[in-house]
Design a protein around this nucleic acid. Sequence first.
DNA 1: GTGACATATGTCATTATTGACATATAATTC
DNA 2: GAATTATATGTCAATAATGACATATGTCAC
Lengths: 183, 183
Amino acid sequence: MIQYILLGFLNYQPMTGYDLKRALDHSTGHFWHAYHSQIYTTLRQMEKDGLVTSQFVMGEGQPDRRTYTITEQGREMLSVWLSRPLTEAVSVKEELLVRLFFSGQRSNESILAELTVQREIHQQKLAEYRKMQQEMEEQAKCLPLPSLQRDSVFWMATLKMGMRYEQAYLDWLSETIQTVQSL
Amino acid sequence: MIQYILLGFLNYQPMTGYDLKRALDHSTGHFWHAYHSQIYTTLRQMEKDGLVTSQFVMGEGQPDRRTYTITEQGREMLSVWLSRPLTEAVSVKEELLVRLFFSGQRSNESILAELTVQREIHQQKLAEYRKMQQEMEEQAKCLPLPSLQRDSVFWMATLKMGMRYEQAYLDWLSETIQTVQSL
DNA sequence: GTGACATATGTCATTATTGACATATAATTC
DNA sequence: GAATTATATGTCAATAATGACATATGTCAC
């Protein structure tokens, strides 16, 4: 998966591993996390596979940088991947639900403490997404390239799903906290 | 993670790998999937670690079965895990959002086809969860052990999150389909 | 000047997960 | 009687992901 994400970004412009890590952290990282270790090793593998090329630039006054550029083969691979639609349910991994499922043996206080912390975490996430939405709407007014206008519709769509997810999570947490309190 | 799920089930009663696979598929599998291969290998490892013991029963008229029983150490490990609350955001993995994020280069038709299939998938999931909820509510009236009454509150809570998630997903899919149609 | 932080790139051992391959019996259906 | 499905348990190679360890420079504040 991470390989397609990297191709997706490199399809816009050449970037270094560090650039990519930052780009991910502010966008796709919210729905597909990656450590920098995974990014650097995947980029190396992709170079071996001919999906990208790299240029090492000795740092003059700055640390050395290795810039990766997508190849025609890389673009082709990204296109093929995008053209083959997801036709199955993706598997969800929700550790909190696993924990709650087996929480019959726990005290109400222990459970409530955990759910309350989670509510704070998801409130922060929602606030973060709302801020991102505002910033994105402002940036959309003055995009450097008109071709990015179309892209920004999809970026915004992913953000909207993030907000719906966080809102649903928050609503459920409040409901569940109430339920546990009344036990 | 899968290890704690297995301990969670074995904490109720001794079970075989096959039993566990079925139990997971009808419950926790909806928020933490596991192949039978992972279940069997994890059970073996857990036996080495002293978390479970196993009794092999030659099948008389039925296939051979290896029944796993949780040990005191296993119960302890489960308890410790449950008592250490999740205090961080769990990382989400949403392949559809990754795909949509980089879908600027795709045709509207291709995107709409994918979103429509996803809507059907999530509608089915929601229907499945609603059916499970009905069954659970009926079963709750005549539980074999009164101690399960408390547990069923948490099982129901996880199911409710599943329904909220699917509903949020469906609402977002409809919204996004409309957005793409109007491009 | 020194300590902290951002920039920048990597390695590596371990664990987790995937999904195909393999095997055998019993019951049911055609 | 042949095929299919459910029961039941495993192996294994490959991939993906985790998170610690390692290193070096530039900048800024104190």
